[in-house]
């Protein structure tokens, strides 16, 4: 099977053209990361003022947590909204009878998601620096590993949601908005897994995010990279991504058997 960069570009161009014509969609990309940062940033500032040194560390961890968790949330939304866009515009029937391979569609959606994530986080990062004097780049090169791992997590969650859209149709649309947010309590963004009840800790440890945020806290509090946690996050991401791709492939084939590609928007 021959992958075509031109076909992938066709689908990236299709989404960029939508953003070019719709300022509310562009504004939405940056709106939630910025809003979250403002809420948690002021909370962190308040805690920092109350408790001097440990408070300042907690404040840094809160702001870094908000910014980094947005990578997963935006990454997931970027893929699922891109797919939903095709359902809303009743265009899937044209796309799936073109030579576009499902893997090329995914490559395009992931590329658009990456662009959306970077565009969404850029203003929030600037605001964090200007308002709270917090520079996330001070985490150093390890920040790139955090970014890649959290983005991958958003992507495999998105593939799972797209698989559910194949199975249940546009009726499952609400999942696009809720699933990643629902995972937040066990992602251990703002607290270590040990803060969770014992029975919930294995769930948290099965998610790459808990390990990434443990690594983030190690970087902030001990000024050292937590390589074992980062290695576990990467291994978990690979496992989850593989599983998500298998489920996506199975659900796509099943949709072709059931005729769901024709009626997915109904």
């Amino acid at each position: 099977m021959k992958t075509s960069l031109r076909r992938i570009w066709a689908m990236i161009y299709r989404h960029l053209a939508v953003y070019r014509r719709s300022w509310p969609r562009v504004a939405e990309i940056a709106y939630w990361p910025t809003l979250n940062l403002l809420i948690w940033g002021f909370t962190a500032s308040y805690i920092g003022h109350l408790h001097a040194s440990p408070g300042a560390q907690t404040a840094s961890a809160l702001i870094a947590g908000v910014l980094l968790w947005e990578i997963t949330l935006r990454g997931q939304l970027g893929v699922t909204l891109g797919f939903l866009e095709e359902i809303w515009s009743r265009n899937l029937g044209h796309i799936f009878v073109s030579p576009l391979r499902p893997a090329e569609l995914l490559a395009a959606l992931l590329s658009v998601s990456l662009l959306r994530t970077l565009a969404g986080l850029f203003p929030a990062t600037i605001i964090a620096y200007l308002l709270y004097h917090y520079n996330i780049l001070l985490l150093g090169p390890v920040l790139l590993l955090f970014f890649v791992n959290l983005l991958f997590m958003g992507w495999w969650i998105a593939l799972g949601i797209v698989s559910l859209l194949f199975r249940y149709g546009a009726g499952a649309e609400a999942l696009a908005w809720t699933i990643a947010f629902g995972i937040t309590p066990v992602a251990c963004v703002y607290y270590p897994a040990s803060a969770l009840p014992g029975w919930l800790q294995p769930v948290a440890m099965a998610l790459p995010a808990a390990h990434v945020f443990a690594g983030m806290r190690a970087g902030l509090f001990q000024h050292a990279a937590d390589w074992p946690d980062l290695a576990q996050a990467s291994a978990l991401n690979l496992g989850w991504m593989l599983l998500a791709i298998l489920i996506f492939g199975a659900e796509f084939r099943r949709a072709r058997v059931r005729g769901a590609l024709i009626s997915i928007g109904e």
């Binding site: 066709a10 161009y13 299709r14 053209a17 014509r21 009743r90 029937g93 044209h94 073109s98 030579p99």
Partner: peptide, 28 residues
């Protein structure tokens, strides 16, 4: 091959030219 049906739409927010460009790229 190719296909046309009035029951399947093209992306409404894209201009006619952008739509044709997208499909031109898809069909190389």
């Amino acid at each position: 091959m190719n296909f046309s049906s009035p029951y399947i739409a093209l992306p409404a927010r894209l201009s006619v030219e952008e739509n044709l460009r997208v499909y031109g790229h898809l069909y190389n």
